[in-house]
Design a protein around this nucleic acid. Sequence first.
RNA 1: GUGCCCGUGGUCUAGUGGUAUGACGUCCGCUUGACGUGCGGAAGGUCGAGAGUUCAAUCCUCUCCGGGCACACCA
Length: 866
Amino acid sequence: MTQEIIYPKRFRFHEIQKKWIDYWQKEKINSFDLKDGKNIFTIDTPPPFVSGTLHLGHVLNHSWIDFVARYNKMKGKNVYFPQGFDCHGLPVELAVEKNYGISKNDRENFLAKCFEWVNNNINNMTQQFNEMGYSTDWNYTYRTMDDNYKYKVQWSLLFFYNKGWLYREKFPTHFCVNCETSVAKAEVGYQDEMGKLWFLKLPIVGGDDDYVTIATTRPEYIEACVGVFIHPNDDRYYHLSAAEVQIPLTDRKVKVEIDKNVDMNFGTGIVYCCTYGDEMDIKWKLEHGLDEIQIFTEDGHMNENSRYKGMTILEAQKRIVEDLDELGLIADIKDYEHRIIIHTERSSCRKPVEFLPVYQWFINVKDFTQEIIESGEAIKWYPEKHKQRLLDWCEGLDWNWVISRQRIFGTPIPFWYCKDCGEIIPPKEKDLPLDPVTMQSPLKKCPKCNSFNIEGEKDVCDCWIDSSITPLAISKWLENEDFFEKTYTNASIHRPQGYEIIRTWLFYTLFRCKKLTGKAPFSEIMINGMVAGPDSRKMSKSFGNIVSPDEVMPEFGADAIRQWAAMGSLGDDYPFEYTWINLQSKQPVKEDVIKKKRQRLPENKFNNKYGRRFEQLTGASRFLTKIWNAYRFLRINLDKIKIESIDIDNRKLSPIDTFIFSEYNQILRTISNHFDEYNWHEGFALLRPFFWNDICDNYIEAIKYKFYSEDKQTQENALKNALNLFYQILKLFAIIMPFIAEEINFLLFNKFKKIPSIHLEKWPLTYENLSEDLIEQGRIGIELIKRLRTIKSSLKLPLNEEISRIALIAEKNILEKLEGLKEDIENTIRIKKLDVIDKVEEKNIKDRPDFKDIFKAFDIKIYFYR
RNA sequence: GUGCCCGUGGUCUAGUGGUAUGACGUCCGCUUGACGUGCGGAAGGUCGAGAGUUCAAUCCUCUCCGGGCACACCA
């Protein structure tokens, strides 16, 4: 090791990170060993979607996961910590279409390119995980697009089919006409939008210039109108109850029907029912046996049932309104704020969702929500409050799970069906995994109707079908019975995730794993919040408050960013703070100024003029520098003073040593308690000031002089005690800041501790058998030293200036203690002569001090002579 | 609309039935034999607003305001 590496004033994280990432990999420091089959603690980590880069949300989430892994390892558990990737999804298809210009019709090539694109992204993301200091064992990674993974997914579908929980049916489902696929209820959300409410006049058949007027936000649905509804108690329209109305722009007539679900107070109190405008329309259609007239195509245009065929839905709306107006059938138009259903699960879409009746595959979940609730109740939640989200979702669920997606890059739904009678033909188990598009059905003839018109399913699975068996995938279910028993059946399984996917990932995983194995997967769950920008709004492109890890990682390093993550509070959203500054003046700039400038200036000019200051990370970096310098100081002394071990003899502790050890004991216990609850914030918030103030500013300052002592034994003991304590603290640091901990471990402790990594260490123990008397004496010493330094500072004296004399005047019972501290105080404060005087002698002191002070806590008077 | 969470010095954050923790920033002093990305110190808060319970409330209750999330929904 060269001097260069040992003594730089700053922690050089760039080279150090790289060095340890390679070393940990080479030496298999993070390897999981099943042989110790007892006490296995499995972490079922969220597989990130393979967008190609990690964002700060991932950094927060996965830093915490890494803390969980490292902490539990240190606590003696055999931690199984794999990390996989969620590969399938629309964004992959879009990226491949865009970047390679390959059409989906060229199915084979297209899928190959999807695979390639995903693989590149995974390589990138794997590297980012490593740069975070993520301690997963990559030998157990998985990709949801792998055959081996698909096998499990398809096997599970076959199992569900055999149980009668998987079925195919033509049913109106949420359908994103932008993404051209059906989506699950869990993937849609509502968005407020300023729209219009149109009052349309529908002519009454046989009535002379007589109309019913309905109010609607969707006039483009008029051609699909199959009924008009009024409320049974609505006196205003009593006379209409048997009437028929003519649907404008069509040659159809529909009946006026009565239903109590009509809201009399909305609009005119009359509503038209269309196929399928919304969930209410679906219910009415089924209950009243109405016709079905579908007017939209799957890509969001009008179909052959409409005279506006070929137009987009929006274009059609415009034309329909114009046409109705021309016919004089528009009674009124009002501005109206309403909520539209949009595709929210992929934030890049957020386009309106329609209901389309197409053949879909469904899994019955409605009948099992009670069971899911039970699995949820059995989990220990960190924090408890988020359990309610799962329970609410279960209790409110009234739709089954649409699992089919009209896409091609996904796990194929491994079934065939008869095009004539709809009979489903399941695959043979031995043929899995398979793609029914390219593979022949096991039966040539429909077993029900003898038709030969058999078709392989083209649709693929919802991504949540892939990801909701992650606990089974990582435990080698269906693959290795022994491994499965140890890492699933008999393990405690920890599930870390954000609260936003409780109703999806958690819900589906609880459901499917229980059904497939008989055992609910999780014993505990740790919930993280979302990362917000400084405006405390969720980070998103549309708010312009995004910070990418790539922006901050090169400047601050993983250990600093992990400290930021550690300071986030359990289950709550957490802002990533920054301030815009003018790079020349270094002055803060307001957000709205930035917004304007960003629009006006070209990007490079803007970037030259303005930058962001990351205060939280600055603080984190300083802490790293502090730790680094504490190491340097001890290292310099270790080079001078020869010691054989850092084992300490409790009987040879000074009062100051005893006191700081006792303080450490307390801190350690409290931190353990917080970490046991996965409360990283509180634990780290204690650790930082303890190390900085108590250890560095007070303890090290107070023992420093011993390193220059004439007495070898004094030197050795002081250094041993300090190193021993530092090593304990380093183990605590290792969880949050794995790189600096490992670096210092090697530079400072390698010759004492013959272990290949500090990350294989056990959680530290407290120091036992400390003398209460010495603790108290040490406390007085430290407090006095602090006080005397403050006095020096307030007198504007440089800290190294020697004081000619100080007298401490105290009660008899404390005198003895002070005598024992004399040397520590004299040397640390630099006093030529320190006198300890009995209070009864005080009146005999003749010289007037330059400064007088009383230290109330111990009733000690301080006479200070410059 | 219903439910849950949140609102603490300039910013973020901890916490408690007896007016408050830490970080970053600001100001003052000190280049100490690890560290000026340091050390010592200071300023800065009616703990969202109002009402109630209490000897006492930032902490408990209610109402309101503001923010977030979830669920429901009138077309």
